[in-house]
Computed example of a mutant assay.
Amino acid sequence: MPQAVQPWIVHKVYYGHFLCHVLHQDYVLRAGVDSAAIKQILLDTLDARGAEYPAEHNVGHSYRAKAPLAAQYRRLDPLNRFNSGIGKLSHAPGWADSPDDNGDAMTRIYRCRTALSEAAGLFEAAFTPDASWAGEVYPARRGLIVTQAEDQRQLHPAVWGIPERRLGLRGKDDCPTIWFRELWEVSPFLFEPESRCIIVLDCFATPTGVAGRSSKSWSGLESDILFGWAGIWSGEGANPCFTGFVVAGNALVGHDRVMPALLRPSEAKTCLSGTASEAANLARRTLPPTEMWSEALGEPWNCKR
Rank of each mutant, 00 (worst) to 15 (best):
T275H: 12
T270W: 11
P260T: 05
A279N: 04
A251R: 01
N239L: 13
P240T: 01
R257W: 00
A238L: 10
E278H: 02
A261C: 10
A251M: 06
A276M: 12
L262V: 14
P265S: 04
G244T: 02
R264P: 04
N239Q: 13
A230Q: 10
F245H: 06
F242G: 15
G254Y: 02
L263D: 15
L252S: 14
V247T: 02
G254D: 05
A280D: 01
A280Y: 11
K269P: 01
W229V: 07
W229N: 10
P265W: 00
K269M: 14
G244E: 09
E236L: 12
G237A: 06
C271Y: 12
A251L: 07
A268R: 13
A238K: 09
K269Q: 13
V246F: 03
V258K: 13
T275K: 09
A230R: 08
T243L: 05
A279C: 03
F242I: 00
I232V: 10
G249W: 07
S234F: 00
T275Q: 08
D256C: 06
W229P: 07
P260D: 00
G254R: 01
K269A: 09
W229Y: 04
N250V: 13
I232Y: 07
K269N: 10
G228V: 09
C241Y: 00
G254V: 09
T275R: 08
L262I: 14
P260H: 01
P240F: 03
T270R: 04
N239V: 11
G237Y: 02
E267G: 09
A279L: 03
R264C: 05
G228Q: 02
T270G: 13
E236G: 11
V253H: 06
F227Q: 08
V258W: 07
P260S: 04
A276T: 03
V247R: 02
L252D: 15
N250K: 01
M259G: 00
A268Q: 11
S266L: 11
V253N: 07
E236M: 05
H255P: 14
A280E: 03
R257C: 03
K269T: 04
R257P: 01
G231D: 06
A268G: 11
G249T: 14
T275D: 12
A238C: 12
E278A: 09
W233A: 13
P240C: 05
W229S: 15
C241H: 06
A248H: 15
A280V: 00
A280L: 04
A238I: 08
P260Q: 02
P240A: 05
L252C: 14
A248T: 06
R257G: 01
V247H: 07
L272T: 04
A279S: 07
A276I: 03
W229H: 11
E278W: 03
M259W: 15
L272H: 04
A261Q: 03
M259F: 14
A230H: 10
